[in-house]
Amino acid sequence: MRWAIVRFPGANCDEDARFALEKAGIRAEFVWHTERDLRGFDGVFLPGGFSYGDYLRAGALAAKSPVMEAVRRFAEEGRYVVGVCNGFQILTEAGLLPGALLANLNLHFTCKEVGVRVERNDLPFTRLYPRGQVLRLPIAHGEGRYYADPETLARLEGEGLVVFRYAPLKDEADYNPNGSLHDIAGIVSEKGNVLGMMPHPERAVDEVLGNTDGLPFFLGLVREVAR
């Protein structure tokens, strides 16, 4: 099992992604943003950060980089693509996932742990979670408010493409940290192979970090191949 982690200039969660993938026993390799060939990889991970300084709009410039053509082909072949945080923003900017990620309602970068409910567990990313489980995952973004037009939202809901939704950890009323529509924290493509999410599962994979709720996400990717 071999995954590529795309290194855009300005990405800063690339090492964290490698840490998490390797922790799950997956071979992870960095791929430069100018790479045009992703053959030989079982999956592609678009890490968080500030690709190209997030100039213009978060993810907008990265979406036009040479590697994204290869990622598009990779996705069309039905292989797995995961975008976390800035990676999710890049996927929406590239049109690989619908909708957009707007500035948080509080207009501030926000870093904290939030509750994230697993809405479906028939995907490799979530197969090791019970459906409905509320995970404790870190967020760290300034532009994470998921937005889509009403038709798109209806389609996402109708086809069950919402994979992760913000949810209360205890009974807090303000559990949605950024004002995302329908509390959406992560969505998947119709074919179920392209996943984008704002929370960071790769930051929650070790006891030392005080949180292991993200580890099954990566272990799930491994089981996919063994199947």
Partner: peptide, 26 residues
């Protein structure tokens, strides 16, 4: 204040802000 700062990037932060009297990096 500290919610405005990314305090976890690098996945080394073993004691988050507000959790201990000092920060701990792994």
């Amino acid at each position: 204040v500290y919610e405005r700062y990314d305090h976890q990037v690098g996945t080394r932060t073993a004691l988050l802000p507000g959790k201990g009297d000092a920060a701990v990096l792994w």
